[in-house]
């Protein structure tokens, strides 16, 4: 079976990420040669695998929270009984998205303290916004004719939602989740400044200690992780509209 280009891209990115995460120690001589002045040319306080998994856990957990809460809120305000709150929710989402993620992250510290928890909360809040906006836009984009015929054929409100509206809104909702996850991947790296252990840690430690090798190691892996996630969402997006391209 031949791979489609999107799957191929995802596989390639995954391979690159795995090679970087697992093979970084093997590059120690290279970094030692590039930066002969450094005592420790390889970040070894934690393994890159641990950092990557922690990073992914933070991004994953915050994105899941955002998708659950944002999705529910978006669904609620597109139902007749919740429509009155739609303007309010959209205002909050629009306003919130102008707040730079790094500032949201920093502001979580005075209210919650240091550690992974403020990072999780800040990332979840920030990821909520694109999810809410795109859930509303996606559900709103379902044509009235389709909604009307679903009702007319005898689907109840929940059957209409799950069988018709959500599958049709899926591409737009997915785009929102993708935005949230990509932004969070970057913000999670910065979250190592508030005490969360992520792939940003080698970068921050390297910047503070003038160790460019650390910076490059962390930056390469976090960049590769972002590319993997982006390629994954690209693949998912194509899958969610497979009915549009069939035939």
């Amino acid at each position: 079976m031949r791979l489609d280009p999107l799957t191929g891209r995802l596989m390639l990115a995954l391979l690159a990420l795995a090679a970087l995460v697992l093979g970084m120690p093997a590059l120690k001589p290279l970094f030692a040669a590039l930066y002969p002045a450094l005592d420790r040319p390889l970040y070894e306080a934690e393994t890159f695998l641990t950092l990557t998994l922690d990073h992914m856990a933070l991004v994953g957990a915050s994105s899941l929270i955002a998708v659950a809460a944002g999705g529910l809120a978006g669904i609620a305000v597109t139902r007749p009984w919740g429509a009155e709150f739609r303007g309010l929710l959209e205002a909050v989402a629009t306003m919130g998205q102008t707040f730079p993620p790094v500032a949201v992250l920093a502001l979580a510290v005075p209210s919650i303290g240091f550690g992974p928890l403020p990072a999780l909360i800040a990332l979840s809040l920030y990821a909520l916004l694109p999810v809410v906006r795109n859930t509303i836009a996606g559900l709103e984009g379902v044509s009235d004719a389709v909604r009307e015929s679903a009702r007319g054929l005898g689907m109840g409100p929940w059957e209409t939602l799950f069988r018709v509206e959500l599958p049709l809104a899926a591409p737009v909702i997915l785009a929102g989740v993708r935005t949230a996850v990509i932004v969070n991947t970057g913000t999670a790296a910065i979250a190592s400044t508030v005490g969360a252990k992520t792939l940003g840690l080698p970068i921050i430690v390297g910047l503070n200690g003038s160790n460019q090798a650390y910076v490059i190691q962390g930056a390469l892996i976090v960049g590769a992780l972002a590319l993997v996630l982006d390629a994954g969402f690209e693949r998912l997006a194509a899958w969610s509209v497979r009915w549009r391209t069939e035939g």
Binding site: L220, G223, D230
Partner: peptide
């Protein structure tokens, strides 16, 4: 599009070495 997906801190870090 690809550039936008790369986390800012990573891009800053990766620019350091060539500029240095």
């Amino acid at each position: 599009n690809l550039v936008q997906t790369i986390p800012s801190i990573a891009l800053f870090g990766l620019l350091m070495a060539p500029l240095a």
